[in-house]
């Protein structure tokens, strides 16, 4: 594989060819999400390919929902990169929650790299239909 080897050695020797190294806290990749609301609560769907249940962390910090995941794929020995759209191993995204949501009752599930988070509304916050009386 002379081509790949040359590519690897060239990129590692020429600092200008490298993507800039970030020194501050690495925020990771921002996964795409869908967010929708119905009468009983909010649902968040996030694409987290390569994240297993063991590498996923969904938590509420004060009033912020935090989604973090570590990407893990099987890498054979002696592998060299030929092409890479994904150049990070960490996903992270945060969402501010509001008072009418019941953070204690959040439910999360993961299937085939798609995270589903259900955030119910507090019972007293569910919309009530207001009847209009005819006079």
């Amino acid at each position: 594989m002379p081509v790949e080897r040359e590519l690897t050695s060239r990129t590692s020797q020429n600092p200008a060819a490298q993507p800039s190294r970030r020194t501050e806290a690495e925020p990771g990749m921002r996964p795409p999400v869908d967010v929708f609301e119905d009468a009983d609560g909010l649902t968040l769907l996030a694409d987290l390919p390569g994240v297993s249940k063991e590498r996923l962390d969904v938590r509420v910090e004060r009033d912020t929902l935090v989604v973090e995941g570590g990407l893990e794929i099987a890498l054979p020995e002696q592998m060299q990169a030929v092409y890479a759209d994904i150049r990070s191993t960490r996903y992270q995204r945060r969402f501010a929650l509001s008072d009418e949501l019941d953070a204690e009752a959040i439910d999360a599930s993961l299937k085939d790299g798609v995270l589903t988070v259900r955030i119910p509304k507090r019972a007293e916050s569910k919309p009530r239909r207001i009847e209009i009386r005819s006079q």
Partner: peptide, 17 residues
């Protein structure tokens, strides 16, 4: 992502759901 090893190429497609 594509990675090359001496005996094979591995192509990873990030295709959730």
């Amino acid at each position: 992502n594509v990675g090359a090893s001496p005996d094979k190429l591995d192509v990873y497609l990030f295709l959730p759901g």
